[in-house]
Amino acid sequence: MSKNKFSLSDFLCKFYVYILLFVMYAPILLLIVYSFTDTKIIGKWGGFSLHLYKALFRDKEIMQAFANTFLVAVSSAVVSTILGTLGAIGIFYSGKRSKAFLEGLSNIPVMNAEIVTALSLTILFVFCGITFNFTTLLIGHVVLTIPFVVLSVRPKLMQMDPNIYEAALDLGATPSKALREVIVPEILPGVFSGFILSITLSLDDYIITAFTRDTAFQTLSTYVYGVTSKKGTLPPSLRALTTVITLIALVILIIVNIKSSKEKEK
């Protein structure tokens, strides 16, 4: 097919993709547009204003929820990444039976409905008489994210040249040194994507958070869920919040895109 020739079917294909993207982004775009005006109801433009942003950054409850969300996401991702990476390495060098057992076990939270995972953890905590606190929430998020770390690291282990670890040992490295200086650098991209994936899943989570948190501890998900169930539409300052979150996501998107195109050049 020549490049300059106009093809109707190609045009329609592109049109479909862009229309779909537009429809998908319509709710977010609407909120972003109406975050720059100070009206209660979406649809009535009240002139340009940054009032909602001021209100957002002054709202202690929302800011606290925002900080909490990141606290949970980062701490659970760190725990998941460390435990999961070690787990993936250990599983990779395990015997057939324990490998099958651990891989099967890792798949349970992936396949399972989130609400079943959430309820099963709740019952465990209730059964053991543990009161819900930050640790229970952290455990919930680690359960949610850890299999994805293992799944991201595993392919890198399989791609690795099995002889380099042996070579390091033969050259006099201790097993822990060989692990740190030979295996870890090889699997680092997988570890990194596991970490990012963990953060993504944790930030987005509602159900496990709702079940395993101390009820006084609000994340963005639980906060927004709480206010939407009270009123008809979102409180106006949350429109400003949508803009902020979309901007953050966009920045991450651009960074990931640049990083992956650089990797391609290599």
Binding site: P27, L30, D204, T242, T246
Partner: peptide, 14 residues
């Protein structure tokens, strides 16, 4: 990457 509950509430507002 945009919070799931917020995204759903945005759809409701639309």
């Amino acid at each position: 990457w945009i919070n799931f509950v917020l995204r759903t509430a945005a759809t409701r507002d639309l």
